[in-house]
C-alpha cells in the first residue's frame, strides 16, 4: 500500500481528520503518519518532522502528502530535500478533509499512488454536485459544474459504448437502505471491488446520474443516490459477473444498514 502523510499547523486538526478518515476503512488501514505543530506545542509546521513522517510510511509504493495551507506547503516541499527514502513522494493539492477520506479508502483497496492522488484531487466533486444549486459566488458555481463532469471517477466508459464487450454484465437493483449511497456504503463498494478483475460502473437510473467508477468513493458519493432509486451496475472483465453479484447482494442487504 502507498503511505499517507498528513501535515497540519495543528496536531489536533490532523488527528481528527485522520480519525474521521479511518472510520471509512477496516482494521488494517494504509500506513499513515502525522506531522503537525512545531516545537513545544507551537501551532505551525516543521520540515524536519514532515521528512521523518514521509520516511516512516514509505514502503516502496510511494507516499502521498496532504497539507492544510501556508507554511505546511513550504515545509512539505522543503521536507522532500531532507527525506532519505527513494520512494516517489507526491505533494497533493487535494482538499484536506475530503481528499484524505477519499485517499485512505482507495489506498486501503491497494490502489497506486497515481490513482489515489487523482481520486483525492477530485474529492470536492461530490460536495460540489450536492451544493450546485445553492447559489454562492459565480466562480464557485462554475467550478462546481465542471469538476463534477470531469471527475476522473466519471471517466469510466459509458455503459452503451461498452456493449460490444462479450464479458459485459448489467444488472439493475433498487437501493433499500434508508440513507442511500452515503459515504459508508460507498466505501464498502470500493473495498469490495478492490483487487477484483472487473471494471464496474454505477449509474443512478432514477436520477439519470452517472455512470461513475465503482473504484471511486467520491464518484459514488457524487451520485447522491437516495433510497428507492434504481442503480445500474455494469461490469466488464474476467470477474464481471462476480463483481456485479457481490454488489447486488450488498445492495439487497442494504449495506448492513437495515433494521434487523
Amino acid at each position: 500500500m502507498i503511505g499517507i502523510v498528513v501535515v497540519s499547523h495543528s496536531p489536533a486538526l490532523a488527528q481528527a481528520a485522520v480519525d474521521l478518515a479511518l472510520e471509512m476503512v477496516g482494521e488494517t488501514p494504509p500506513p499513515i503518519a502525522i506531522a503537525a505543530g512545531a516545537g513545544d506545542g507551537i501551532i505551525g509546521t516543521d520540515a524536519v518532522k514532515v521528512a521523518a513522517a514521509i520516511d516512516e510510511v514509505a514502503s516502496g509504493e510511494g507516499v502521498l502528502v496532504f497539507m492544510d495551507l501556508g507554511s505546511a506547503v513550504l515545509s512539505s516541499t522543503m521536507a522532500t530535500e531532507f527525506m532519505t527514502t527513494t520512494d516517489e513522494v507526491r505533494l497533493t493539492d487535494a482538499p484536506f478533509v475530503e481528499g484524505l477520506i477519499a485517499a485512505i479508502v482507495l489506498a486501503n483497496a491497494g490502489a497506486s499512488l497515481d490513482e489515489v492522488d487523482r481520486e483525492a484531487r477530485a474529492a470536492m466533486g461530490a460536495k460540489q454536485s450536492q451544493l450546485a444549486d445553492q447559489g454562492g459566488a459565480p466562480d464557485a458555481v462554475a467550478a462546481a459544474a465542471a469538476p463534477a463532469a470531469e471527475t476522473p471517477a466519471m471517466d469510466a466508459p459509458a455503459a452503451d459504448s461498452a456493449s460490444a464487450d462479450p464479458t459485459e454484465v448489467t444488472v439493475e437493483v433498487p437501493l433499500v437502505n434508508p440513507d442511500g449511497l452515503h459515504a459508508r456504503p460507498a466505501s464498502l463498494i470500493v473495498q469490495a471491488l478492490a483487487g477484483v478483475d472487473a471494471k464496474l460502473t454505477i449509474t443512478d437510473v432514477t436520477a439519470g446520474k452517472g455512470p461513475v467508477s465503482g473504484n471511486s468513493l467520491i464518484g459514488i458519493m457524487s451520485l447522491g443516490a437516495a433510497k428507492d432509486h434504481v442503480l445500474k451496475f455494469t461490469a466488464t472483465g474476467g470477474s464481471a459477473q462476480e463483481a456485479v453479484d457481490t454488489l447486488v447482494t450488498m445492495t439487497g442487504e442494504g449495506f448492513g444498514e437495515l433494521a434487523s
Binding site: 499547523h9 505543530g37 512545531a38 516545537g39 505551525g44 520540515a47 518532522k49 507554511s71 513550504l74 515545509s75
Partner: peptide
C-alpha cells in the same frame, strides 16, 4: 535547520 524546526510559520522554511 534550527529555524526550520523552531519557527513554525512560513518564515521557518524561508529563512531556513
Amino acid at each position: 535547520m534550527t529555524l526550520v524546526t523552531s519557527v513554525g510559520g512560513a518564515s521557518g522554511p524561508l529563512y531556513g
